[in-house]
């Protein structure tokens, strides 16, 4: 039987390429999550600002 080196190479290549693709996908998922958290922080800041201005309006009118 010959050495079958091409099959050995193919087997290792499939493993490393697959692992690389998985890690890239995981990285993309984390980046997506990071962007989502940033969006949520902005929305939270906006709603807090709206709430504060809503609270300050009656005070200023009463004074």
């Amino acid at each position: 039987m010959d050495n079958n080196l091409e099959f050995l190479f193919a087997g290792f290549a499939v493993f490393w390429a697959g692992l690389f693709v998985y890690l890239v996908m995981l990285q993309m998922r984390l980046r997506e999550l990071q962007q989502e958290i940033e969006t949520l922080e902005e929305r939270l800041a906006e709603s807090e600002q709206t709430e504060q201005s809503g609270n300050s309006t009656p005070n200023s009118s009463s004074s």
Binding site: M1, D2, N3, N4, L5, F7, L8, G11, F12, F15
Partner: peptide, 16 residues
Amino acid sequence: IVEGEVQRLMYIHVPV
């Protein structure tokens, strides 16, 4: 001896 170099795939295949 029998399977040749391809048998080295065992070190990945069996653990995964």
